Computed example of a mutant assay.
Amino acid sequence: MRTRHHKLTCRCEVTAIFVLYDLPRLLTRSVLTHELMHGWLRLHSN
């Protein structure tokens, strides 16, 4: 039995980041930073 190795490629695209409004400023910053990091990791996960 022969097996072949295939590299999986995924083209990811981030189109929006949603953040709740009317939060305290410090909490808004931390949530936005967290979500931006998710987006960056998704775009650069090769």
Rank of each mutant, 00 (worst) to 15 (best):
C10I: 10
W40Y: 15
F18I: 12
N46S: 08
H44T: 13
M37N: 09
L23C: 05
L36N: 11
R42H: 06
T33C: 05
W40E: 13
H5R: 09
D22L: 00
H5A: 07
L32F: 03
E35L: 01
H6D: 13
T3K: 10
L8C: 04
H38N: 03
H44Y: 02
L32A: 08
T28M: 01
P24N: 14
N46F: 05
R11Y: 05
I17E: 09
H5E: 15
L20I: 01
T9W: 08
V19E: 14
F18G: 11
L43S: 08
P24W: 04
L26F: 06
K7Q: 14
R4M: 11
L8E: 14
H6W: 12
R4Q: 14
H34S: 04
C10N: 08
H34V: 01
I17K: 08
L41S: 03
T3Q: 12
F18N: 14
A16D: 15
S45W: 07
T15C: 05
K7N: 06
L36A: 12
I17Q: 07
I17N: 06
H5C: 03
A16Y: 06
L26T: 10
T28N: 05
R25D: 15
H34E: 08
L41A: 03
M37C: 06
T9N: 11
I17D: 09
T33R: 06
T15M: 04
C10G: 03
C10V: 12
H34R: 02
E13L: 02
L27D: 13
H38I: 01
L26Y: 06
R2Y: 06
C10H: 05
H44W: 02
E35K: 08
H34K: 07
I17R: 00
L32P: 00
R4F: 14
T28P: 00
R2F: 04
T28K: 07
H34Q: 03
N46Y: 02
D22M: 01
R25W: 09
S30D: 15
